[in-house]
Design a protein around this nucleic acid. Structure first.
Length: 780
DNA sequence: TGTGAGTTGATTTTT
DNA sequence: TCAACTCACA
């Protein structure tokens, strides 16, 4: 059976799969079956007797890790191989060795917005003038330093760099604050581990011994910290296999260092290099377009991409008069293809450089009734209500977490305002206490008036009450938080419609917690749940099997493929982005970004631009992207902007009267189609009618499978009210104790348990729902 | 202390 | 355009 699957590999792929010991570099072009090779190789290692726990595969996204895990499961069922993102891997290592870097093992991980708040407070404390430098620029500079393994103590401003001098002051203070709260930011996860490996030879050796075989995916995107970690773990056992493609390095702005992959052969002179150059994904035409474009980059390793696939259709390049027409025409074309039965929604993807460009596309798709899913900005775990509730958990998990304390102390409002909080902070600073400890001494703070002191004391009572259930299943803890803090009631009482939506989101969070509890029935430390919730990202929520058109940024598209791809807004300032003009290596990265986008397409590809585009609420004349001049004319089908404009005007002049005065400017674009061999330029006609496709649903997070429903045990004494009928905050009736409210829920199936707070003297009691006499009360 | 209006300022990509 | 932050007022 094994040899069968081995036979299905090409000789180059096989070469990589059969390499066992020693360093290995797999240079894998787009669509070359890289994941297949990596998973086969892991299976091969296992087959040769390498223990699963000695292998670790590191990726950048959870999605990539998940993909590998599921594909390996097919080849070598049973698992046990650790596949994880760098950040999660580091979080786990750091939990085990927290003390060596000055953290508690229950440290909190701050996401970007948490870190920014900490930085803000640091700036307030230092009394620095923030008008000169935005917190964003400062966090950026600190992040850069951390990714380059420059610790707060080591940071030296470069002379002549005013920003550097501010950073030199802020960085140490910011870092001290994080440590005092026993918290880390994303970059710290890597930095701490890298420093730990460097400064503790015995720990390094132990881990090197433990992780004998290391695989790194997307190696071209590693930064110095990641490089150091991987190297540190591959000294005694240099069985390091990395895969990557220098042409797909698109995270330079995050500190990714292209040299890591370009110089891999210098780091490991006896490295075995395998090149995967055959593409199984795209048509010949698409591949030639991609190849031509990327050829303009200087800093790369030339490689010969080729494919045995069909020639395919020409790649089309369309210049639309306006952004709106661009969106509408694309949507119309998609609708037409679906209506004609040629394609399904999931065959299409639309990519853009920045999230802000998604709006007009969304509107157009919605108008056509086309279902779509968007991988975008405001993700679930960034929502206010979710962050609020999670902050309670963070504080329960880590009492030193000042950031969480400040978030929840007056959420929902409980009369603890700015002044009171100011006093608490001052007291904490004076006595070198965490805010929780300072709040405990609120009676001793003279500046506090009685009312404030009482309010703080009440909050502390709440906190202590929540701490008591810290070891319970996460769903149950969450339930107590929602009930005891009054947060849920606060939202229920609210008039604001938005708050009703928030309740629904919280409901989703409860479901997520329940699912987590199921996955971790025994070891369910709260911190693992918190870790999961802050290390997930947008792309993770993307679902391949949903039958919807996909909208995403070019960055998010890496690793995916679609039959038909549209890339919009190929305009100067957007692609390449204006910030990339300063330096050539930034420009090359933009080119790689477009390369990544182009190579996602299997069969059809359309690139487009608009002569006028909305920008900060204003209409702007655009300039075509310089990259357009780097595409091979022979492969392209160029649609003349004038023709497009004329057709559109005749179709519905009123609809598109975007600017009364600019009608005669329409054909006057800087983009000259004659530059291309546009022999058969054919105007794009929008389809007349929208299809009656399913309703558009904007995805907020992964729909969670209710495994409980599968598990449900139907016993003879099945309750008349099924356990699933009960939910958080619901009012119930008990024959003996009377009316009560669901405070918390936990467990599954017949073991599902509810904590009920009764209005009567019965107080709080726990019930097994399957065997209890509880009923939902009529009114809520 | 909490709310609301008004202003300002910033807008790449993500773990 | 839009979100976040400030300031004034109840």
């Amino acid at each position: 059976m094994w040899s069968d699957s081995l036979n299905s590999l090409t000789s180059a792929q096989r070469e990589a799969v059969e390499h066992l010991d020693g360093p290995l570099l797999i240079l894998a072009g787009p669509g070359s079956g890289k994941t297949r090779v990596v998973t086969h190789r892991v299976a091969n290692l296992l087959r040769h007797g390498v223990a699963a726990r000695q292998i670790v595969a590191l990726t950048f996204t959870n999605k990539a890790a998940e993909e590998m895990r599921s594909r390996l499961e097919v080849l070598a069922p049973g698992g046990g191989v650790w596949m994880s993102t760098f950040h999660r891997f580091c979080a786990r290592l750091l939990r085990q060795h927290a003390a060596t870097v000055g953290l508690d093992e229950n440290f909190t991980i701050y996401d970007t917005s948490d870190s920014r708040q900490v930085l803000r407070r640091t700036l307030d404390q230092l009394d620095l003038d923030t008008t000169l430098y935005t917190p964003e620029r400062l966090t950026g500079a600190i992040s850069w330093a951390k990714n380059n393994l420059i610790t707060a103590a080591q940071y030296q401003p470069r002379s002549g760099h005013p920003l550097g001098h501010v950073v030199a002051k802020v960085y140490p203070a910011y870092q001290a604050r994080l440590l005092a709260s026993s918290a880390v930011d994303f970059d710290d996860l890597l930095l701490h581990v890298a420093v730990m490996l460097r400064d503790n030879p015995e720990i390094r050796a132990t881990l090197d011994e433990r992780f004998r075989y290391i695989l790194v995916d997307e190696y071209q995107d590693t930064n110095l910290a990641q490089y150091t970690i991987v190297r540190g773990l591959s000294i005694d056992h240099p069985n390091l296999a990395v895969t990557g493609d220098p042409d797909q390095s698109i995270y330079g702005w995050r500190g990714a260092n292209l040299s890591n992959i370009l110089d891999f052969e210098k780091d490991y002179p006896d490295v075995h290099v395998v090149k995967l150059e055959r593409n199984y994904r795209s048509t010949k035409r698409i591949l030639r377009v991609a190849d031509s474009l990327i050829g303009y980059n200087q800093r790369r390793k030339a490689k010969g991409l080729y494919t045995e696939n069909d020639e395919g259709q020409s790649v089309s390049l369309v210049a639309y008069p306006t952004q709106r027409l661009e969106a509408e025409t694309i949507a119309a074309r998609i609708a037409e293809e679906i209506r004609a039965g040629r394609r399904r929604p999931r065959d299409f993807a639309i990519f853009y450089r920045v999230n802000a460009l998604s709006r007009s596309l969304e509107f157009a798709l919605r108008d056509e009734g086309i279902p779509y899913q968007m991988v975008n900005g405001l993700e679930f775990y960034q929502r206010k209500e979710i962050k609020d509730v999670l902050a309670y958990l963070q504080l329960v998990n880590n009492p030193r977490d000042d950031n969480a304390f400040l978030r929840v102390i007056n959420t929902p409002p409980r009369g603890i305002g700015k002044t009171t909080i100011g006093h608490l902070i001052a007291h904490a600073d004076r006595r070198q206490l965490s805010l929780v400890d300072a709040a405990r001494e609120s009676g001793l703070i003279e500046a506090l008036n009685k009312r404030a002191a009482v309010a703080v004391a009440k909050f502390m009572a709440l906190y202590d009450q929540l701490s008591l259930v810290a070891a319970a299943p996460v769903e149950e803890i969450l339930g107590h938080v929602l009930s005891a803090s009054g947060y849920q009631q606060f939202l229920i009482d609210s008039e604001d419609e938005e708050d009703q939506e928030r309740l629904a989101n919280i409901e989703e969070l409860l479901t997520a917690a329940r699912e987590f509890d199921e996955r971790h029935p025994t070891d369910a430390p709260l911190e693992t749940f918190l870790e999961e919730s802050c290390l997930v990202n947008d792309t993770d929520a993307w679902q391949a099997d949903d039958d919807r058109v996909t909208l995403m940024t070019l960055h998010a598209s890496k690793g995916l493929e679609f039959p038909v791809v549209f890339i919009v807004a190929l305009e100067e300032g957007l692609l390449p982005h204006e910030r990339s003009r300063e330096a050539n290596d930034l420009l090359e990265e933009e080119r790689r970004l477009l390369f990544v986008g182009i190579t996602r397409a299997c069969e059809e590809l359309q690139l487009s631009l608009a002569t006028y585009r909305e920008f900060r609420g204003q209409r702007r004349r655009t300039v075509p992207s310089q990259f357009l001049m780097e595409l091979p004319r022979g492969e392209m089908d160029v649609v003349e902007p004038n023709a497009t404009a004329r057709v559109e005007w005749e179709t519905s002049p009123d609809e598109h009267a975007w600017d009364e005065s600019s009608g005669d400017e329409l054909g006057d674009v800087d983009f000259n189609p004659a530059e291309f061999d546009a022999t058969d330029a054919e105007p794009v006609t929008p389809s007349p009618a929208a299809t009656d496709a399913a309703a558009v649903v904007r995805m907020t997070m992964t729909p969670l499978t209710t495994a409980a429903e599968l598990h449900r045990v139907q016993t003879a004494e099945a309750p008349r009210v099924p356990p699933e009928a009960f939910h958080q905050g619901m009012v119930v009736r008990h024959p003996e104790y009377g009316l009560g409210k669901v405070v918390a829920l936990s467990g599954n199936g017949i073991r599902r348990t509810a904590t009920i707070a009764f209005a009567s003297a019965a107080g709080q009691r726990k019930f097994m729902l399957a065997s209890s006499n509880l009923r939902p009360a009529k009114s809520e």
